[in-house]
């Protein structure tokens, strides 16, 4: 039995509640707790707008609740560690963000999230609050292209939230926002590589087993099995394998413009990710694919898991417009 991970926490059962308290304070007044619920909402919401509600299990900070802010999510429903939020949390969060023009539910495509958000949507319909849902499914390792509905949402979440937030700040109707966000979802692809496991605070146990000299290409954010388990490889060789899977999936083609995102799963160094970025740009140059913007950072973590993921989103003028809007949140700010 692996020994429990070292974590600076208090009562393991209170990690989510205490994390949310700290999160609200760290936003310096820009967000507030939805009273009585594990949910947060922007304090500067305009009187009338299409609302964007994001959410999912906790333990992946800054995703999702760190992405609530101007031109990002309007609110977030927060579950326990790695577990979807319950319908009562989602309903309370949706009511807190609703400004008369309907609510977009935007979350990762996992069975638990789907069931709980769907139950919440049904409850809100009974109260005449219009809800539309877009599930993020960018992980190409999870299922073949013909079963895209079986794919998980990973770090593409950030680009999706960014575009949804931008579109919902500008567009007048929920239908229009959904159209843009669905287009973004159709054009985003990601894949990750796991180097070592993270652990759940309450159990202290690693979420998967990986030998000291092994990596796993395509492993999911919760240790779901990936494409292949291999001996540790140099950065360029890892980048080659990841890019091969992503580029051939859409497929991305010469002349395409893309957003590139490299995400640290928790314990990987910026140095490693920049070395990977170097190789990724060589590959994209060779293919004639132009990078419109790059984000390298820590967006979707799995506690102390080591590894990273690469995301590409093919852009058109409309997606660029919303992606490039200034955003301000604890987890992601870019002018």
């Amino acid at each position: 039995m692996a020994k429990a991970a070292k974590k600076i926490i208090n009562d393991p059962k209170k990690v989510v509640a205490e994390m949310l308290d700290g999160l609200v304070l760290a936003n310096d007044g820009r967000i507030a707790r939805v009273p009585g619920h594990a949910a947060i909402v922007r304090t500067d919401l305009p009187e009338s707008k299409v609302a964007v509600l994001i959410g999912g299990g906790s333990g992946h900070e800054p995703l999702f609740h760190g992405f609530v802010g101007r031109n990002m999510g309007d609110g977030a429903a927060c579950g326990q560690v790695f577990a979807a939020p319950s319908p009562d949390i989602i309903v309370a969060a949706a009511k807190a963000v609703h400004r008369g023009k309907g609510v977009l539910f935007l979350y990762g495509n996992y069975a638990g999230d789907t069931m709980n958000f769907d139950m919440a949507a049904e409850l809100l319909e009974d109260e005449d609050i219009e809800v539309r849902t877009v599930r993020i499914a960018d992980d190409v390792a999870a299922a073949p292209p013909e079963r895209k509905y079986d794919r998980r949402g990973i770090a593409g979440d950030l680009l999706m939230i960014k575009i949804a937030g931008g579109a919902a700040s500008e567009l007048e109707t929920l239908d229009d926002v959904v159209r843009v966000v669905e287009k973004a979802g159709d054009n985003v692809r990601s894949i990750g590589v796991a180097v070592s496991a993270g652990s759940i605070p309450e159990t202290g146990k690693p979420t998967f087993e990986l030998a000291d000299d092994e990596i796993e290409i395509g492993m999911g954010a919760h240790g779901e099995a990936g494409v292949s388990r291999q001996k540790l490889l140099p950065a360029d060789a890892v980048a080659d394998q990841l890019m091969d899977k992503i580029l051939n999936d859409l497929p991305f083609q010469s002349g395409d413009e893309v957003a590139l995102l490299i995400n640290n799963l928790g314990a990987t160094t910026m140095m490693e990710m920049l070395i990977v970025n170097r190789r990724i740009r060589q590959i994209l140059d060779e293919r004639g694919i132009k990078v419109h913007r790059t984000d390298v950072g820590t967006w979707l973590t799995v506690q102390e898991m080591a590894g990273f993921s690469v995301t590409l989103m093919k852009l058109d003028d409309e997606l660029k417009r919303y992606l490039d809007m200034p955003a301000e949140s604890l987890g992601y700010s870019r002018m």
């Binding site: 299990g57 579950g79 326990q80 790695f82 577990a83 979807a84 939020p85 319950s86 319908p87 009562d88 949390i89 996992y110 069975a111 638990g112 069931m115 709980n116 139950m119």
Partner: peptide
């Protein structure tokens, strides 16, 4: 169970 368990298990057992 629905409100405290959360996740897929909360939805299903709830």
């Amino acid at each position: 169970i629905l409100s405290k368990t959360g996740g897929a298990a909360g939805a299903i057992f709830g």
